[in-house]
């Protein structure tokens, strides 16, 4: 019994004392390639413990449930930065330690979710638009979200499996903000979506790329980065930035409050901000980068590709998703459940 106790104590104390040169990174899966982490470890001698998540909610819930989880770097999307900074879950950033900060595209600075850019470093971004397979439908006939309601698309559409994204489509069509919190307007959007339902073939957010490539759906909502990736395999695919507006998001890096290895975290942030590093990442994951210096380094075929790098004019039609209260989110979720249960 005593031996057991001693070994237990030893086990936990080594875990607690392991405060050497390490960095705990918790990021979106599929965003940071392994070779970048290895390059960082080699250049700095810092050992990186790298773990991933596939939704903001998972990351947030984990940090909420255990504020001392020990992560030094997290990668929340814009609207989660909004929520986490208001709930004091983030460290304010000391930009003096970030010599490459100037590389960031100014389009993604001074945003409502972090007005003073105090907590977040924009890293990659994306927009939700309409993916069209040219061999099935003429992309010229689809310019706005409201076109998806046409009867000819019966049982054809793919929609993202995300309540707020789908409600945004209806809210935009009704001429409202995508950040509507009034239950009455959300209900109207729900009624509008009910009319769309016969056209819906499936909801999916994780496998959209293969669904588009394999033509299991030939029309629908998709992220520009995913559609671009799919278009490399299936050249019939194109992407439309709807005229009536669209959702735009940014994934950012942040340091959670009381992160144990903050010095290393700053070195990591500055490394990720380097143009050559951000370029390598952009070439690997094919998401549009928020790093302007890196964007300029990309080959012409990519940096002028209208799917992932549209003109500033097009981008201005985008609206950022904002955080909202749990009560408002609950209203969305209720109507989402009702929509899916067809009642």
């Amino acid at each position: 019994m005593r031996a057991l106790l001693i070994s237990l104590i030893l086990f936990f104390s080594t875990a607690a004392l392991a405060d050497e040169n390490i960095l705990n990174v918790y990021a979106w899966s599929g965003v940071i390639p392994d070779f970048i982490i290895q390059q960082f470890e080699k250049e700095t001698g810092i050992k990186v413990n790298f773990s991933t998540y596939d939704s903001n909610e998972t990351m947030y819930t984990k940090l909420r449930a255990n504020p001392r989880a020990g992560y030094d770097i997290i990668e929340p999307s814009s609207y989660y930065i909004d929520r986490m900074r208001r709930q004091q879950m983030l460290e304010p950033l000391d930009k003096k330690q970030l010599s490459h900060y100037k590389n960031i595209n100014s389009l993604f600075l001074k945003t409502h979710y972090d007005p003073e850019d105090k907590y977040s470093i924009p890293f990659i971004w994306g927009a939700t638009g309409i993916a069209v397979n040219k061999s099935a439908f003429d992309p010229k006939t689809i310019t706005r979200w409201s076109d998806l309601w046409k009867k000819i698309y019966l049982n054809q559409l793919m929609l993202l499996n995300d309540s707020r994204e789908v409600f945004s489509v209806a809210l935009i069509t009704l001429g409202r903000s995508i950040n509507e919190t009034e239950p009455k307007q959300i209900k109207e959007a729900y009624q509008k979506l009910k009319e769309l339902l016969p056209n819906v073939k499936l909801f999916n957010s994780d496998a959209t790329i293969s669904i588009l490539i394999d033509e299991d759906a030939t029309l629908g909502m998709a992220w520009n980065g995913d559609t671009f990736k799919a278009s490399l395999e299936n050249p019939h695919l194109t992407f439309i930035y709807p005229k009536d507006g669209f959702v735009i998001w940014v994934d950012t890096f942040a340091i959670p409050r009381n992160a144990p290895h903050q010095t290393n975290a700053y070195r990591f942030l500055n490394f990720m901000l380097r143009a050559d590093v951000a370029k390598k990442i952009a070439l690997d994951n094919n998401y549009p980068t928020a790093n302007l210096a890196a964007q300029n380094l990309l080959p012409n075929s990519i940096k002028h590709n209208p799917i992932i790098y549209p003109s500033r004019e097009v981008l201005k039609r985008g609206e950022f998703q904002r955080d909202m209260s749990d009560v408002a989110l609950g209203v969305y979720e209720k109507y989402w459940e009702k929509l899916k249960m067809g009642s």
């Binding site: 499936l202 909801f203 899916k340």
Partner: peptide
């Protein structure tokens, strides 16, 4: 239901 059914309805697990 999410993968094969296209997530078109909500079952208890999803709820």
């Amino acid at each position: 239901p999410d993968l094969l059914g296209g997530a078109k309805s909500i079952l208890l697990g999803n709820l």
